[in-house]
């Protein structure tokens, strides 16, 4: 075995030890104030009653945002949550998770550049995920903290942990977390293959058309009257039935969380949310239980 292979194996083992050690991520329960999901270009023309998934939507028009589904979808799910549960923008934080960011814009700008065409100033502006957070904060008067993240780990766990930490800040009572994922070019497929090689695990390539996009958002606070469904860490669970897990950065877990939230609001009860075999799990509970 080469030194490089041995180092890769050691890194994998360290990573697995670390993931095991982090099974419990929430110190305190969170309250779910609202959830929203949106898809575009996936080919789903009707809602899926079995999963609760909505039909594709046309992209909302955002001034200054062109060519890419990233920012319109991020804004749309944020808008739904913040409209359903209006609150004090000064006491609201926003955290966006996206593994690769707006790859549509990045690829378009790069292809223009290498072909000798002039850069489009609009692509300059929207190239960072921060731009749409700025637009959202402007529309809803959010002056709390805004962050954007890239994580190979399960974004649900990262986002809930981030919300738990931020809500310990006495200046905040709500955290809007959201995830965005785009279909993409063959460059994305190559990147996933390299990630697979580095992780030593099979990494499925997302099956999304190039112009497709997914977004999901969850508005969180501490449990209480406006949040009849709460979420807390599950300290022990049977991971055998959790399936193989998705590709890095998959936001399917956020869709699962949103679907469970809708079902618990309707039916009551509780739900074990396991998004990936090695990721932390969470228990969602309706207050009426």
């Amino acid at each position: 075995m080469t030194t490089e292979k041995r180092e890769q194996r050691e890194q994998r083992e360290q990573r697995e030890q670390r993931e095991q050690a982090e099974k419990t991520v929430l110190r305190s329960p969170l309250g779910i104030l609202a959830t929203a999901t949106a898809t575009h270009g996936t080919g789903r023309s009707e809602p899926d009653e079995a999963t609760g998934a909505h039909a594709d939507i046309p992209l909302p028009r955002l001034p200054g945002f062109v060519e890419s589904a990233f920012s319109p979808l991020a804004f749309e799910v944020s808008r739904q949550c913040l409209t359903e549960q209006p609150g004090d923008g000064a006491r609201t934080a926003v955290v966006l998770a996206t593994l690769m960011g707006d790859t549509t814009t990045a690829d378009l700008a790069s292809q223009r550049m290498v072909s000798g065409r002039v850069h489009n100033p609009l692509l300059f502006m929207q190239a960072t995920a921060n731009a749409v957070l700025g637009y959202t904060s402007q529309e809803f008067g959010i002056t709390g903290q805004t962050f954007s993240l890239s994580t190979l780990d399960d974004p649900v766990a990262e986002l809930l942990a981030m919300a738990d930490l931020l809500l310990e800040d006495p200046e905040l009572d709500r955290v809007l977390v959201l995830g965005v994922e785009l279909g993409g070019s063959e460059r994305l497929a190559v990147m996933y293959q390299v990630l697979a090689a580095d992780s030593g695990r099979p990494v499925p390539v997302p099956d999304l058309p190039e112009t497709a996009g997914l977004a999901a958002a969850v508005l969180l606070g501490r449990p209480g009257g406006e949040a009849p469904v709460s979420v807390r860490s599950a300290e022990a669970y049977d991971a055998d039935g959790a399936g193989a897990g998705g590709h890095p950065g998959s936001i399917q877990g956020l869709f699962d969380l949103a679907a469970a939230h809708r079902r618990l609001l309707r039916d009551g009860g509780s739900h074990l949310l396991v998004t990936e075999p090695r990721s932390p799990a969470f228990i969602l509970t309706a207050a009426t239980e």
Partner: peptide, 12 residues
């Protein structure tokens, strides 16, 4: 280094 464009990959 194709995947070096992925921010989280650089952290790993």
């Amino acid at each position: 280094r194709n995947a070096d464009a992925v921010p989280a990959h650089l952290a790993e």
